[in-house]
Design a binder for these strands. Structure first.
Lengths: 222, 222, 222, 222
DNA sequence: AATGAATGAGATTTCATTCAT
DNA sequence: AATGAATGAAATCTCATTCAT
């Protein structure tokens, strides 16, 4: 909408990234055409290639830069937190807040991994693993200290991340709830979810032998 | 000349649906070409049109049929459950189990809504709303009876659904955990998450005025 | 010119090949666009892909099929010739005649080798080597029997082939000379060129140590 | 900001010509992009236009300058030669030597005529005609004096030129033969080829009525 | 004389869809 | 119900060329 017609100079690249994020968020990588993107930026589609090398590289750059930033800021948010509950609360608050601010980036980084070419995919999954391990470590520490209780750390990690990341499918600024309320709602859910508590009314569960977090496999391709 | 190779007879439609589910799951709707799909089935792409009317209709049918089936089976799973905790446990068990069995369908029904044309989109969102309302109602009942505690029912509904649906991004049969273990892990997480419990260490939260579940807006399009 | 509008069925492939030969002959492979080619055939450019897999494959097929045919017919033309002079005369007559009939194919097979991708290039050069070796063998035999005299067999082979192949840059049916006259002119030139005869008025020439024909190197690429 | 890397000053034009010759030789005019050329020279493609006016003009200049130089040097090489055989030997020696030194220029001047726009094409063909006429005149003189025997002077002219020009498709310095040996090999072939000699074993050939050399037609275009 | 960014045309290739057979 | 060949639009990407700086 902010069509800076005949966009020029070093601002063009930034405009491409911003428009790219929005279009991929809305339509998906495969469904976004470079013509659309160029039109959004206000240039001819061929002119995009003065700034990007391929469509695939654009996606890769967007995702990689996002995850790097995410990791950097997460580590800052966790700084100084001592006990597992504080860490977990900080993790949730950071994650939710960040996702409300950068919902395009976050959504894309989760949903468009399958659009990455193998080499790029490997690189991103490695980065993502680092982020997941931060949460897994917090949970493991809490379990070890008896503060938390989960059936399986890996499953809990994935589940909590899915829960938190779900925000960017429905959050829109100016909605019914304030950001703080949304953060609080998620803190309650997550903190409670790992609290020692009501045993499920089932028995003979094969307990997870390992609590190290395994790499998620890539969905099989043909 | 005709019918040299490839499947034929009434089995073809089923083969198309199955291959379509897998290909859309792997590559996404936009990135799946009908040539790919036809090749998977063992026919020419033109022959697909003896069975489907358009690519879009195929997606719509797959998603609609899935959600209808989901609702039907959910209602059966909830049959006879009386108190909110039992209902919630049944919901989780059903949802997780179903998602492990039909991960392609479930994933597509969540991730490819944006690929539906407006009319189809509306129809599906309406169906999905019915499913969401089942969970929202359980939570509301539990809160009313003092069994559950959440900051906001709508947020909790979306969060729990996101948590549960996350399974289909990583589940693979034959993995480290049995199905029952996975179900149990999720039951623990979800049941705990809404248990009356550790107050978040924040105050003055603007409480949600309404607990009716609002329709999620569709992401704005151009 | 023979634009069979809306060309259909199995004739299309033949039309593509014929038009492709002419257009590559006239403009060169790189300068021929598939739109041009399709227009010539009377179809849309996308429709070409019902018959060819890529532009490069079209070139490769045209060149390979031509060289195979050339070899086949050469061997037939040489059948039964006993002494080197008869063989050489037959070679010249065949080569010249063939080149007048198929000047497009011949020209392309010589001038567009550089447009072949490495793998295709290797395959064609191997085939071409077989053709060159036929002539080299005739010359070697003639030299051994004292009927011919050349300074270097490899150089003579390349030179004679260049001489003979030059025809397709200027020959046009209906010109000043009959085909027979053209053949006779070339027979005279080639037969004389290797006849024992006027020593060049130079001395101390480093004689060629080997008379085996070496593979021509591919022009270096970047 | 400007002039960070890459050649500059008056040497740039020479670098462009040299790189252009090599790239056209290797890939052909149509397949050489100005980006490639600029990269080779070490500048941006836009900067080429400080030195050339269009891609087409670059080709034209390269070809024209080459042919002019060729003519100039040929005339110097023929200076003082009296009888046809000496002239022909001098022609061959000059041509072969020159082609070994300037194989890029020679090859392009022969193979890229079709890439010239009509006006440029006419100009070059006129120049080339002058060169061809030098050889045709030598042959005619030799035939008139009874020193040479050919079936048709025009055909012989074209054939000998093709033979001699073939060198630049295979010559590479440092190969098996010395330059002198290569020259000698070609002198033998050419001098012998026009020597009165073995009548072809055919009869009733329609003799060429004219011995003036006709202009080669340009290949028909669309 | 060089850069970097733009243009507008055009390249090859793929797509969903149609239809006579 | 399947094929093979067609369409017309659209995809990504490259091209020669221009021009303000």
């Amino acid at each position: 909408m902010a069509r800076t017609i005949g966009s020029h100079g070093p601002k063009t690249m930034e405009a491409i990234r911003k428009a790219g994020l929005r279009l991929i968020f809305e339509h998906g990588y495969a469904a976004m055409s470079l013509r659309q993107l160029a039109a959004e930026v206000g240039i001819q589609s061929g002119s995009l290639y003065n700034h990007i090398s391929t469509k695939q590289e654009l996606l890769f750059d967007l995702v990689r830069d996002h995850i790097n930033e995410l990791l950097r800021q997460l580590d800052r948010a966790l700084l100084g937190k001592q006990n597992p509950a504080d860490k977990l609360r900080a993790f949730v608050a950071f994650h939710v807040t960040y996702h409300m601010t950068k919902k395009h980036e976050v959504f894309i980084a989760n949903s468009e991994l399958r659009s990455l070419e193998p080499k790029n995919y490997e690189a991103i999954v490695a980065l993502r693993g680092a982020y997941e391990r931060r949460l897994a470590a917090i949970l493991a520490e809490g379990v070890a200290e008896g503060e938390f209780e989960v059936v399986d750390i890996q499953v809990a990690t994935f589940a909590i991340l899915a829960l938190l990341t779900g925000i960017c499918t429905w959050y829109r600024p100016g909605g019914r709830l304030t950001k703080q309320a949304i953060v609080a709602a998620h803190e309650k859910l997550v903190l409670s979810s790992v609290a020692p508590g009501p045993a499920p009314d089932r028995t003979n569960i094969k307990r997870a032998p390992s609590r190290s977090i395994a790499a998620r496999g890539r969905p099989e391709r043909r």
